[in-house]
């Protein structure tokens, strides 16, 4: 009997062990299976292009001639890029527009968030949604509408300025520019940076407001009460309670602004009608590398320019981290 059971058990136990192994394998790897779609998509569209672009930046390649036409040129693309006056001009344009749109974004969003929180939760929810709306609206749609508003002859900006320059109360303020009205908001090199920056500011101020309202919500009411008891007024409570405790949020918001603004593409592209107007001052570095890649069909140069841009953004972010990182990340 015993021997029989042993014999009968032996063949059963091997498959059982195998089944257990299989189960173990399944258990271990099933999660990865489910993650696979993400890994594949991220690999193909996220990781592969980065490495391909490194490879590309050392080659001369006109895409229209097919993959076989790539020609190794060593560092030539980098040399060409770094000594290219247009690259530095567009880099400067990008930087100026990044500051013109970025700084006011935060200077406006912070007090606005504070004000919204003071209004109480009901009004805050409605208003935050309203301010957030531009952020989730398509950039191209927004820019096209602004393009129409900036129009020289039929735009609302010029119409208002023209009206104000003739209205009795405001005429004296605008007397200086009356001669040059209507203004070519998107045509003139002298105005384009302001026109683009205003659109960027309008679109992202809501996003930063949301970050700051969320940040303010994390600050305990007790602190405000304590400050109130000590006789602190509204401004002092904002300056000495909210602002210091918001530092991690400011740090996060500003980092995103630096990276986002250095990559500015859509707004200037649409407002200058694909680079037809105000190219000297209105073209960002992303616009320039798109032009090199897709209009001049010089993919190698474009890849080198993007790496140069990458390094520049890296340097700016590093400086920012070095200056504000420890405080910003909440450390000592």
């Amino acid at each position: 009997m015993n021997s029989e059971t042993v014999i009968s058990q032996a063949p059963v136990s091997a498959p059982a062990q195998k089944a257990e192994q299989r189960n173990h394998f399944k258990e271990k790897f099933t999660p990865y299976g489910f993650l696979m779609p993400y890994f594949i998509i991220y690999g193909v569209f996220g990781i592969f292009p980065v490495f391909f672009m490194i490879y590309l930046s050392f080659h001369l390649w006109n895409p229209v001639e097919g993959l076989g036409s790539m020609e190794f040129v060593g560092l030539e693309n980098y040399v060409l890029g770094l000594t290219d006056p247009t690259l530095w001009q567009t880099m400067w344009n990008t930087l100026v527009m990044a500051i013109l749109s970025g700084v006011p974004q935060h200077l406006f969003a912070l007090p606005l968030a504070y004000f919204l929180v003071m209004l109480g939760s009901r009004a805050r929810h409605w208003l935050t949604t309203a301010y957030f709306l531009p952020y989730i609206t398509s950039t191209v749609a927004v820019s096209m509408i602004f393009y129409v508003m900036y129009s020289k002859d039929s735009g609302i900006f010029n119409a208002v300025l023209l009206y104000l320059s003739e209205a009795p109360l405001t005429a004296w303020i605008l007397s200086g520019i009356k001669e040059s009205l209507p203004l070519g908001w998107v045509q003139e090199n002298s105005l384009i940076r302001y026109s683009v920056s205003f659109v960027v500011w309008w679109k992202y101020v809501g996003f930063n407001t949301v970050i700051y309202t969320a940040g303010l919500a994390t600050i305990s009411q007790d602190l405000y009460e304590a400050a109130k008891i000590d006789g602190a007024n509204n401004w002092q409570r904002f300056r000495h309670v909210s602002l210091p405790l918001l530092q991690p949020f400011i740090f996060f918001g500003v980092t995103l602004t630096i990276i986002g603004n250095m990559n500015l593409f859509d707004e200037p592209f649409v407002l200058t009608v694909g680079g037809q107007f105000a190219q000297t001052n209105g073209k960002t570095i992303s616009n320039y590398l798109y032009q090199v890649a897709w209009q001049w069909l010089d993919m190698g140069s474009a890849a080198a320019i993007s790496w140069i841009l990458f390094v520049v953004i890296g340097i700016f972010t590093a400086i920012y981290f070095y200056l504000f990182g420890r405080k910003g990340l909440g450390g000592e």
């Binding site: 090199n189 190219q279 001049w296 069909l297």
Partner: peptide, 18 residues
């Protein structure tokens, strides 16, 4: 040609506007 076209248009803008 494509590069020249872009550069000429850019130069034209500098001459006319600036």
């Amino acid at each position: 040609d494509l590069i020249a076209e872009d550069l000429i248009n850019q130069a034209l803008e500098k001459v006319l506007n600036d």
